[in-house]
């Protein structure tokens, strides 16, 4: 890592259903009850702790058939709270939720609303979506970055001004880990852009000076 921009970002995939089987009990196939959710979240957090540097965690719900509110609170809300407020989870990790089906959305929306949290999720269309109690200006800013993919740091101020967007809203999105800011250059990345970059690169890639150097890892159990 140096200040010239060759910053390295790791990626790791978490299959929630597989984690449920290995950490809680192989007999359980549903993400229900608070103790189960707590165990799954702690397993995700311990995987995060094993990553040496900054990382994006792609948490996949596609094999989860039932998700209740208690589990959504433990797995989604408490994980995001830990990232936003510090505490048990490192602050240099971002979470991108994937594989959400319609029946996952309601419990997740409810817990995000309750805790005033945002979550970046893969949309059905393949792009990303910001879930949670998002105000219009914050949503517009997030969508603009999502459409752009990335905004270079030196051009950021003008880019915001030209679109009537506020830097305070940008800070809020960065603090909530809904957008990634390159620590040296100040470039802003949509998490979907990062996950796409990471997915496209071989594991031994040396990266380039134009993007965070992504290393794809698969931590699926």
């Amino acid at each position: 890592m140096s200040d010239s921009g060759d910053f390295q970002l790791d990626a790791f995939a978490v299959d929630v259903r597989a984690l449920l089987s290995t950490t809680v009990a192989s007999l359980y196939s549903h993400l229900i009850t608070r103790p189960t959710g707590r165990a799954v979240r702690m397993a995700i957090e311990s995987q995060i702790e094993e990553i040496p540097g900054p990382a994006i965690s792609m948490v996949d719900f596609s094999s989860v058939a039932v998700l209740d509110y208690s589990c959504a609170d433990e797995v989604v809300a408490k994980l995001l709270l830990g990232l936003r407020d510090g505490g048990s989870v490192r602050s240099d990790v971002y979470v991108y939720f994937r594989g959400l089906q319609s029946f996952h959305r309601e419990p997740i929306e409810a817990v995000l609303e309750r805790h005033a949290l945002y979550a970046v999720v893969e949309a059905d269309s393949g792009g990303a979506e910001l879930m949670g109690p998002v105000s219009e200006p914050v949503g517009s800013l997030w969508t603009a970055v999502e459409e752009a993919g990335q905004v270079p740091g030196p051009r950021l101020e003008g880019w915001l001004r030209g679109r009537g967007l506020r830097s305070a809203d940008l800070e809020r999105l960065v603090a909530s880990r809904s957008l990634f800011r390159h620590p040296f250059r100040g470039d802003i990345y949509a998490l979907s852009e990062l996950s796409g970059l990471l997915a496209a690169r071989p594991e031994d890639s040396s990266g380039s000076q134009d993007s965070p150097e992504p290393n794809g890892r698969d931590h699926t159990s």
């Binding site: 549903h30 058939a65 039932v66 209740d68 509110y69 419990p107």
Partner: peptide
């Protein structure tokens, strides 16, 4: 059936 399961669970 999913919503019913969630009700039972909660």
């Amino acid at each position: 059936v999913v919503q019913f399961s969630v009700i039972l669970s909660e």
